[in-house]
Design a protein around this nucleic acid. Structure first.
Lengths: 173, 173
DNA sequence: CGGTAGTTTCAGTATTTTCTGAAACATAAA
DNA sequence: TTTATGTTTCAGAAAATACTGAAACTACCG
């Protein structure tokens, strides 16, 4: 009986499972990706117990990954008055999701890489020829490229949905 | 004695180690990232034994990761005449590396996601209202966004370095 | 052939990551 | 207070990943 899910819920089930697998390829933990998929397709905010039940995972696991999603700004906590539980709601606007992920990845992954590259370039800045010079140049090239990436990201991040589309269309039209 | 590395080699050592750590955050295995870093900064193509020795890893590990890098088109095999060994050389041009990675990620990660989204959208295309309809719309929105991403990637992929920079400058100038 | 040099595979092991479940904590209501 | 409800933490267990080392394999060479 409790098996009688409406058709769209079956599709949702599939989506959640598969998004989880795809997530692992992106270097995101499976449960986190599944919870994100679940919340992105939730008609209403969900509480921890609902997530646990739906994905058949433990409370600790659900809790940790929900809070990680919150720390990524992909999910926010909702409270209802007269109810002490926390509910979780995912951002559904695709553009906003993209902006958020871009920001976080920039901060967590690109910027540390740039620091490393500059450090390595600085340590070899006096090399005037040969392999040392080439190494130094390689570090500078990588730095330049990633810094350019940051510039692109910042430009995109500062766009609102509408203008972004306009920009994109001009670019590819 | 064998410890007396030139200064640039010390910086390279640092680069290799740290690039390995950064790689894990990107969902890339540490050894693979380290080998890539090592080869990107190698004055000459390196053979398996040199990689093993430099990173202090086993032959099996070196072999597997070198071949994975080759399958990502980030590294190519070089043979020298009169020498039966295979040597490995990484692409050093930053723009080409970027293009290559974009292509591979598109194929391995984005396209499967698009298939999933279309499948889920198709299964719910007749939903005319309520949560089912919203789910369908969400799938379509995600599809549209990723498809747009593919379009951008294709545009970028088809660019040569020079025109890409030109394009980028116009965009951000 | 038999020997040599190099490549590939893979079973078993080690390491890292993720998950569970229960206890400790926090806060509001009775 | 005490009880009820919900959140957070974390030690240990489980699962997923990565690594080793050695044997199997391949191909050239004398």
């Amino acid at each position: 009986m409790s098996k009688e899910l409406p058709e769209w819920e079956k599709a949702r089930e599939e989506f959640v499972i598969q998004w989880g697998s795809l997530g692992t390829q992106w270097g995101i933990n499976r449960t986190m990706a599944q919870i994100h998929a679940l919340l992105m397709t939730a008609p209403e905010p969900m509480c921890t117990d609902e997530v646990m039940e739906r994905l058949e995972i433990s409370r600790g696991n659900a809790h940790t990954n929900l809070k990680d999603l919150v720390s990524w700004n992909l999910v926010r906590i909702i409270t209802k008055k007269g109810d002490r539980k926390e509910y979780f709601e995912a951002e559904k606007d695709v553009w906003k999701i993209f902006i958020t992920i871009s920001k976080e990845r920039k901060r967590r992954e690109i910027e540390p890489a740039i620091h490393l590259l500059r450090d390595c370039a600085a340590r070899t800045k006096d090399e005037s020829a040969g392999p040392g010079k080439e190494f130094n140049q390689q570090m500078k090239d990588l730095d330049e490229f990633l810094s350019f990436g940051v510039k692109v990201a910042d430009t995109v991040i500062s766009m609102k949905h509408a203008s972004a589309l306009q920009w994109a269309m001009r670019l590819l039209g």
